[in-house]
């Protein structure tokens, strides 16, 4: 959970990007990394296989600026999307403050999205989180591709909780910062409530 440091006047929060394999979690982080000013970001770490599939996690530390005299730092993580890396996915959810579910909008990935979302619910539950309460946003990625499922159908199938949902194309960067902002907002509002 968040780390509030009165000594250095910093708030640190952890955000995890979750979703099926090849949905664009790492691409989200890469875009944020490329478009963020040097002084606001740390090194991006990717623990990936030789074929650039995430093996354990990607990590990107961001310093967003001050809020009420506290430096706000967000640590962004992605999980490995491939089904058989479930043990690793559980570990990365430890201490999470907010979750972004990246859905792959392509028709043929609809089942994979549903399966991954179920997996997220199970893993959050196992870590003691309440899926109904944790700051959560959904990003419908790859909207620029031709064979996508209509938005209302995706929303009906994936967004039962009616959390903020955003369209994106992580390759071109469309919707990427909007997604980050949406989840950051929920996390900070949670902090406000004394979460």
């Amino acid at each position: 959970m968040s780390f509030i440091n009165y000594a250095s006047r910093e708030i640190n929060c952890k955000i995890v990007y979750y979703g099926p394999g090849l949905c664009g979690k790492t691409t989200n982080l890469q875009y944020i990394f490329n478009k963020t000013a040097e002084e606001s970001k740390g090194k991006m770490i990717s623990l990936a296989t030789e074929t650039e599939r995430t093996l354990f996690f990607d990590f990107l530390p961001l310093a967003l600026g001050d809020i009420r005299g506290f430096k706000t730092r967000f640590h962004l993580y992605t999980v490995p999307g491939q089904v058989f890396y479930d043990a690793s996915r559980k570990l990365i959810l430890k201490g999470v403050d907010g979750v972004v579910f990246v859905a792959d909008s392509q028709e043929e990935r609809l089942d994979a999205n549903i399966e991954s979302l179920e997996n997220l619910k199970d893993n959050l539950d196992e870590q003691g989180f309440d899926i109904e309460k944790i700051p959560f946003v959904i990003q419908y990625n790859k909207r620029d591709l031709p064979n996508v499922t209509p938005l209302d159908e995706l929303s009906r199938l994936l967004n039962e909780r009616k959390v903020p949902e955003l369209e994106a194309s992580a390759m071109t960067g469309e919707g990427v910062f909007e997604t980050l902002k949406a989840v950051a907002k929920l996390v900070l509002n949670d902090l406000k409530k004394g979460g």
Binding site: I11, L64, I67, R68, F70, K181, K185, G194
Partner: peptide, 23 residues
């Protein structure tokens, strides 16, 4: 501190504008 009634979280006053400014 979290139990004590007069302790006010420094983040209790965060507004949407504060959050928007971060971005």
């Amino acid at each position: 501190e979290s139990k004590s009634a007069d302790s006010v979280s420094p983040f209790a006053e965060i507004t949407d504008d504060d959050i928007d400014n971060l971005f």
